[in-house]
Design a protein around this nucleic acid. Structure first.
Length: 854
RNA sequence: GCCGGAGUGGCGAAAUUGGUAUACGCACCAGACUCAAAAUCUGGCGAGGUCAAACUCAUGUCGGUUCGAGUCCGACCUCCGGCACCA
């Protein structure tokens, strides 16, 4: 240790020592309880940004804490290394995507190591390597065997700018999630994973994780699955054997149905139109609507105008027997429910708007339940009756004009009417979901090839397991045209059929990269396994993940896919639980001021407000950068970058360091063994007792808070402890044994508890303080002694009528009666209550006294 | 429009869950050291008020519950996120 704090030297030194000692490798045979700390694996773009730094600093603090607490900690990292940027680099600059990716990994790994994140590098994985994606393919084949992977012609979301297919999630809102281009629809043969089979579980199992996941993430997951309870009802088509099935959540309003409305894509439409005089017009309308739906689907925040056309076909309401017209309209979605709805203008806003426009009848069949208070009942009734309805009445209420069902409450009618429909055979209660199957086909080069073969004789044939992996060719022509580049590599395409041995062609699509990231953290448990994705026992030993940390941009896609994948793996017998992640933290964004403005925005190249982690490390040290990031704001809040804030972090580290330096000789060169033990010390002065109290209070406070990841207040507590040490005026050269003891206790606790936030500096001080024999990862988190932490005197506020008027210094053991007497005897209080009647006297032991006077 | 979250000093934020509001840090001011500056150290720092004190007012706004409210309840305002024809 030098007298001065030189982070660069210290950090290099300890990074090397850690590497040599393989200090952070998790051992499968370690009998201690495990803790799995996981950060979302990065895409190897080439450079870490501050968001990464924050993510890893949080994860590392927790990993270190658990290590010091005696847990067997798993803290791995890897690379989500398939994906567009590598392919873009190939298309635009003719660079080999594999080389580009590997080079980026080397650089980013270096950055992580310069940050000193305590990863187990022996478990590092990368999605683009055959050893890894072999198992993507293996899972795909397993799912295919189980009927969970299938191929279908399907209108897919097509990004015209990137020339590729997007998943529903990636095109939500009608725009490409990457480039923002308006998404079009195209028909292509696509592979899908049957995530809809798991829709119910994806909602139901939320109760297993709701205590550990942020509510906002769970909400978005629930919304995405979009579970909706209602009923299917079949409307018979007049003069035909056909039936139109609709889905409704409001079967209780069925007597108010004045039309059936079909989506333009409805499969029955053409058949229904046969013989209709309006056939031509309707078909033209449907075509136009289809292309409009596919094209500029929506201009955001604006609802499309509702357009429709009467088909001239009639349908029969199975409840009332009434005949109502069938329409086609642009506001009915084929993708949801059955693609057909019963239109109830009086009780649905959209149907109301539609009915207004096309002068369809509006028939009220639900009334508000009248209240006891006449005024309210009167109000609502008269308004309702006058029925110049401005809006649909969408609340539940009481049924009217509904035949035998009139007089029932909506809640009751919904159940009874569905049951009735079922008995009569024209419907049933049903649950629908918004979520659709996961389209995983991508017309791209840089991904895991879908392991399928097409044979003219045998049809679609899965690649046999012993032929995995289907290896990506070294390179391909990147046209950027939209056709999979693999189709242009004959050596790849041409193969023989595994069944009949005749020439056959390989599937040329690759898989969505979300496949790679759906199961990667299970691979960390057994990263070099060559015969299985991982050993089940090892996976069950380490997973589920105890704490997962990442940005909330992955709140829907990644996290729903990985939950789905886990459930499939459970059904395959690979893991023994339903949910992969016990606790999830979505960290806040790192923002910086946009130059020339007052706005704080996420750091980005285009805004020019990015901060380079390497420059920060060079200027202030990795420890200071990490400490600042953890101290400046609670982990889930936005973090505003501040150069002076990071300077403050350096200042604090330097002060701790100087303190350790000032005392290290006295603490190490001691002749008396008593100085490390309390035994030889007969008495502690009040000053040493105060220092020890602060030490033990700080330990208790930080230990209580750590699991909740309240790092900002933890760092504040460490600063307070240092301030207390600074105030402890004692010269190391002449300090008495008891003082040396108290200082040692304080400094050692400070250093150990600093480790999660600034591990290099902590290691350096730990060594200097005479613990050169071992790294901090074999040290122990300090124990708080509640006796020592207890205050010797309390300051009790005395209030008069709830206002603070005086304070009393007392011993913690003071009785209620004594407190009461002391408060009344207080000079200030006496003058205040003089001439008043004391109505009440509240004494909260250890806390306060409140005197109520009149 | 619907859903979720949040409003506390000049700024980032604390507050043992109903009990001394503003911990810790940043910025700022003053002092020490220095020829000087930086660094470092010491002190100050919610607003009003005063020589100083007393005192008064302050946790988005207005009400309520309570001996006591940043915290609980009701209404409203603002900001930030998410979703959006899902029948």
């Amino acid at each position: 240790m030098d007298e001065k704090y030189f982070p660069e030297e210290i950090e290099k030194k300890w990074q090397q020592r850690w590497r040599e000692a393989r200090a952070f490798e998790a051992r499968d045979d370690d009998p201690r309880p495990k803790f799995y700390a996981l950060e979302m694996l990065p895409y190897p773009s080439g450079f870490l940004h501050m968001g990464h730094v924050r993510n890893y600093a949080i994860g590392d603090a927790l990993a270190w804490y658990k290590r010091l607490q005696g847990f067997n900690v798993m803290h791995p990292i890897g690379w989500d290394s398939f994906g567009q940027p590598a392919e873009q680099a190939a298309i635009k600059r003719g660079i080999n995507p594999r080389e580009w990716t590997e080079k980026n990994i080397v650089h980013m790994r270096g950055q992580m190591q310069r940050l000193g994140i305590s990863y187990d590098w022996s478990r590092e994985i990368a999605a683009h390597r055959p050893e890894y994606y072999k198992w993507d393919q293996w899972f795909f084949l397993q799912m295919y065997e189980r009927g969970l992977a299938y191929k279908k012609m399907s209108p897919v979301n097509w990004c015209p700018r990137e020339g590729t297919v997007l998943s529903n999630e990636q095109s939500s809102g009608g725009v490409c999630w990457r480039c923002g281009a308006t998404v079009e629809k195209r028909d292509l043969e696509q592979w899908f994973l049957r995530i809809t089979d798991y829709a119910e579980q994806l909602v139901a199992d939320i109760k297993q994780i709701e205590s550990g996941w942020p509510e906002k993430v769970l909400k978005r997951q629930r919304d995405w699955v979009g579970r909706s309870e209602g009923a299917f009802i079949d409307f018979a088509v007049k003069d035909s054997k056909d039936k139109i099935r609709v889905f409704t959540t409001r079967i209780d309003t069925i007597y108010g149905a004045t039309a059936i409305v079909l989506s333009a894509e409805h499969p029955l439409l053409n058949k229904l139109l046969e013989g209709s005089a309006l056939k031509e017009d309707v078909a033209r309308f449907a075509e136009k609507t289809k292309t409009e739906n596919a094209g500029s689907r929506r201009a955001m925040d604006q609802e499309e105008e509702k357009l429709g056309i009467n088909t001239g076909v009639l349908a029969i309401n199975p409840f009332s027997g009434e005949t109502i017209p069938v329409w086609v309209a642009n506001y009915v979605l084929m993708e949801y429910g059955t693609g057909a709805v019963m239109s109830v203008p009086a009780h649905d806003e959209r149907d109301y708007e539609f009915a207004q426009k096309y002068s369809l009848p509006i028939r009220r069949v639900i009334e508000r339940v009248s209240h006891e208070q006449e005024s309210i009942a009167h109000d609502s009734l008269s308004e309702d009756q006058s029925l110049a309805m401005q809006h649909a009445f969408t609340d539940y209420g009481i049924l009217v004009n509904s035949g035998e069902w009139s007089g029932k409450l909506s809640e009751v009618a919904i159940k009874d009417m569905a049951a009735h429909a079922k008995t009569k055979g024209f419907g049933e209660a049903a649950v629908t979901y918004r979520i659709r199957d996961w389209g995983v086909s991508r017309q791209r080069f840089w991904g895991a090839p879908v392991p399928m073969i097409y044979c003219d004789n045998c049809g679609t044939v899965p690649v046999p397991y012993d032929q995995l992996p289907v290896v990506l060719p070294e390179n391909a022509a990147f046209t950027g045209t939209g056709e999979s580049p693999l189709a242009g590599v004959p050596e790849f395409v041409n193969t023989t059929c595994p069944k009949c041995d005749r020439p056959a062609r390989r599937e040329t699509d690759t898989m969505d990269t979300f496949v790679d990231s759906s199961w990667y953290f299970f691979r960390y448990c057994d990263p070099r396994n060559e015969s299985a994705p991982f050993n089940s026992e090892l996976a069950n030993q380490w997973t589920p993940v105890d704490q997962y940390i990442g940005g909330d941009s992955h709140a829907v896609m990644h996290l729903i896919y990985t939950r789905f994948w886990t459930k499939v793996m459970r059904d395959m017998g690979l893991v023994s639980f339903d949910e992969p992640v016990k606790r999830l933290l979505t960290q806040g964004m790192v923002t910086n001021r946009v130059e020339g403005t007052d706005e704080w925005k996420a750091m980005s190249k285009s805004l020019g407000n990015g901060v380079d982690p390497d420059e920060m490390i060079a200027a202030f040290g990795a420890d200071a950068a990490r400490l600042f990031v953890l101290f400046a704001a609670p982990v889930e809040n936005e973090l505003r970058w501040s150069e002076s804030g990071i300077e403050g972090a350096v200042r604090f580290l330097r002060r701790v360091y100087t303190m350790a330096w000032r005392w290290h000789e006295r603490l190490t060169n001691t002749g008396s063994p008593d100085q490390t033990s309390e035994k030889g010390i007969s008495e502690f002065s009040s000053a040493t007792r105060a220092l020890r109290r602060k030490t033990h209070q700080t330990i208790a406070r930080i230990t209580d808070d750590f699991d909740d990841l309240h790092f900002n207040t933890n760092v504040a507590a460490l600063m307070e402890l240092l301030n207390e040490l600074s105030d402890f005026k004692s010269d190391p050269a002449t300090a008495a044994d008891e003082e040396v003891f108290a200082v040692r206790e304080a400094i050692e606790a400070l250093v150990v508890m600093l480790t999660p936030f600034a591990p290099h500096a902590a290691e350096e001080m730990w060594e200097t303080l005479g613990h050169g024999g071992g790294l901090l990862n074999s040290a122990h988190w300090p124990q708080a002694d509640p006796e020592l932490a207890r205050s010797e005197e309390l300051e009790i506020p005395i209030q008069v009528n709830g206002k603070l008027r005086s304070r009393l210094i007392t011993s913690p053991e003071v009785s209620e009666a004594e407190l009461r007497a002391a408060a009344l005897a207080d000079e200030k209080i006496r003058s205040l209550i003089e001439g008043h009647e004391v109505v009440k006297l509240i004494v909260v032991p250890q806390r306060l006294v409140n005197i109520v006077i009149r």
